[in-house]
Design a protein around this nucleic acid. Structure first.
Length: 256
DNA sequence: TGGGTGACGACGC
DNA sequence: AGCGTCGCCACCC
């Protein structure tokens, strides 16, 4: 494709581009495109650029989405004609597949990227506190800033920011609403009712008889509860130490 | 430059 | 138990 061709395409009426334009052509002219994918919370728009998925939003009015996209990223986005490898991966992941999806975080600040990369490591069936995430990225006093960064997550669901909750195990905010966040966590196997009972009794950690203690929202605790005789709650780290318990290497419990 | 904002958290009633 | 206050930090004017 020549340089002048590229400009011709850019200047074309984007909505009427020929279906013959392949994903390869879109990649060459650097045009972002979007498609609709089913997800656990209903249909979402998935928008992507050459490097990866740039945005996930609840599906609704196309004009509103396109305007939001340009406002947020300073680039236009047009309906995709067909899936390519990036959107196909996103589609699979949004339906529960264990797939690696390339993500385009170029418009996020370095701090936001650190937060999002850490959130991406939290596995299904788990949740971690905002404060925990702040500690993990080496900014232990930036809890509030972590919440702000997650609130600007351009790719919710793909980067599972819904798995970051408050230290008291209440779910906290979410771009699609706290109720959706709660439903997502439950659908992933986290028993928030059980967690609430533990917290209501004044416990911040849970120990199993095999010698480890966890955050109440650790996914591994539920697994271990099936194979060890019982569990008991703890109020402080000192209490855990007094019992000779080791911190779970998965959830890495933090001080109250 | 500096003041305002916010998906937080600890404390005090 | 729930609310106001304040400290914290990154980000935006």
């Amino acid at each position: 494709m020549t340089e002048s061709n590229v400009h011709d395409y850019r200047d074309a009426t984007l909505r009427s581009v020929s279906p013959n334009f392949t994903a390869k052509v879109f990649a060459e002219i650097g045009l972002d495109r979007y498609t609709i994918c089913p997800s656990a919370i209903g249909d979402v728009y998935v928008a992507w650029s050459t490097p990866g998925v740039a945005a996930v939003r609840l599906a609704g009015d196309e004009q509103t989405f396109e305007a939001w996209y340009t406002e947020r990223f300073g680039r236009r986005v047009v309906p995709a004609v067909e899936d390519d490898s990036v959107s196909a991966a996103a589609r699979a992941k949004l339906q529960g597949g264990r797939v690696t999806v390339p993500i385009d975080l170029r418009d996020c600040s370095p701090f936001e990227q650190r937060v999002l990369h850490e959130a991406a490591e939290i596995r299904r069936g788990n949740a971690r506190p905002y404060r925990w995430l702040a500690r993990e990225i080496g900014a232990p006093d930036a809890t509030r800033a972590v919440g702000n960064a997650l609130g600007r997550n351009p790719v919710p669901l793909l980067i599972p920011c819904h798995r970051v909750i408050r230290t008291d195990c209440s779910v906290g905010g979410y771009v699609f609403g706290s109720d959706a966040k709660r439903a997502l966590l439950e659908s992933e196997g986290l028993d928030l009712g059980a967690v609430e009972k533990i917290v209501d009794r004044g416990f911040r950690y849970v120990a199993t008889d095999d010698g480890y203690f966890c955050l109440p929202t650790c996914g591994d605790i539920a697994t271990r509860l099936g194979v060890v005789p019982g569990y008991f709650g703890l109020r402080t780290l000192e209490e855990a130490h007094a019992h000779g318990l080791a911190p779970c290497t998965s959830c890495r419990p933090i001080a109250a």
